[in-house]
């Protein structure tokens, strides 16, 4: 990043316009991602955006870069494979709370404990939008949805606490309504060496009538405007549980730990995609000789 040349946001304009509902929080996230990429000067050809399935997972189609629009819940393993194949790419995973914290949660936990050098942006709208409004893993208690007509009685999951305890080395929360801060957070997340998770409040204007823009605006505050430090595990964990009248935005946790790629004897030799293929005759014979 030393010879950083910023690129204009238009560099990343996708081939088609997003088909999200007017007012959807995801527009702001897309824009913030484009701003962050420009700020870091990442050439579109060197960026790979990987998503699962859901409204927010349509994002790779709306940005000028390489992309994989994979299966529901499987964005993390697909991204891991692509990243390990070519560690020269900047891999950013995007998706929603259902995709990442529901069907794909198992993969997320393991990606975090591996501390893979990837970024995960979760557009958390606390609802299943694409399937027209069922409860998600982050839907609040008591909230009525199509699948919880008497009110949700399952505790919502705390993605930030989960990330901090699972081994993620950069954990942040953004809000689609705070675009400048969000683009800064995304840029920091991409620049971070290790697994970075940014949970982003991205209101669903169609199916979530509780967690709306005004609802968040009344409650959120910025951690960088306080004296909060980001490298204390226990303080960060406590902060991750702050919810209700006041909800923190910003970097909650940031530490420098060894990444998976540096410990693997083969990956540490450089990107797999650029390595030599096959076996020479001498090595082949040695491998057979072991079995004689």
């Amino acid at each position: 990043m030393s010879t950083l040349i910023e690129l204009p946001v238009e560099t990343y304009k996708g081939p088609v316009d997003p088909d999200w509902c007017p007012g959807c929080g995801d527009f702001g996230v897309l824009k913030a991602l484009q701003m962050a990429s420009g700020k870091l000067g990442i050439a579109p050809k060197d960026m790979l955006i990987v998503s699962g399935i859901g409204c927010s997972s349509n994002l790779p189609g709306f940005i000028h870069s390489y992309g994989i629009h994979s299966l529901h819940g499987r964005s993390i393993p697909v991204a891991t494979g692509a990243h390990l194949a070519n560690t020269d790419l900047h891999v950013v995973v995007t998706g929603g709370d259902g995709d990442g914290y529901g069907i794909g949660l198992g993969h997320l936990l393991h990606a975090m404990r591996r501390n893979l050098n990837m970024t995960y942006l979760v557009m958390d709208n606390q609802i299943y939008g694409l399937t027209t409004g069922q409860a998600s893993p982050t839907t609040g208690l008591g909230q009525k949805t199509k699948s919880t007509p008497i009110g949700n009685f399952e505790n919502p999951l705390n993605p930030l606490a989960l990330a901090i305890t699972s081994g993620a080395t950069f954990v942040a929360r953004g809000f689609s309504g705070e675009q400048k801060q969000l683009s800064d957070l995304i840029a920091k997340a991409i620049a971070h060496k290790g697994f970075s998770l940014v949970d982003i409040f991205s209101p669903c204007v169609t199916y979530n009538k509780v967690n709306t823009y005004p609802w968040f605006k009344e409650r959120v505050y910025k951690l960088e405007e306080t004296d909060f430090t980001t490298n204390d595990f226990h303080a960060s964990l406590t902060k991750a549980f702050e919810w209700g009248d006041k909800i923190p935005l910003g970097v909650l946790y940031e530490v420098d730990h060894p990444i998976y790629e540096d410990s693997d004897p083969v990956l540490s030799q450089g990107p797999l995609v650029k390595q030599k293929l096959g076996l020479d005759k001498k090595l082949f014979t040695e491998l057979l000789q072991e079995l004689v």
Binding site: L48, V50, I68, S70, L71, G73, R74, I76, P77, V78, A79, T80, G81, A82, H83, L84, A85, N86, L89, G106, H107, L109, H110, D264, V266, L267, Q269, L272, V273, Q275, K276, L279, L283, L287
Partner: peptide, 26 residues
């Protein structure tokens, strides 16, 4: 032999990683 070996959390991850690596170019 120069092969990156990844033990995964489940077979969903196994095949999706292999496909991701295929897209990545190896």
């Amino acid at each position: 032999v120069g092969v990156a070996v990844k033990q995964c959390e489940d077979e969903l991850s196994v095949i999706n990683m292999a496909i991701g690596a295929g897209i990545g170019g190896v």
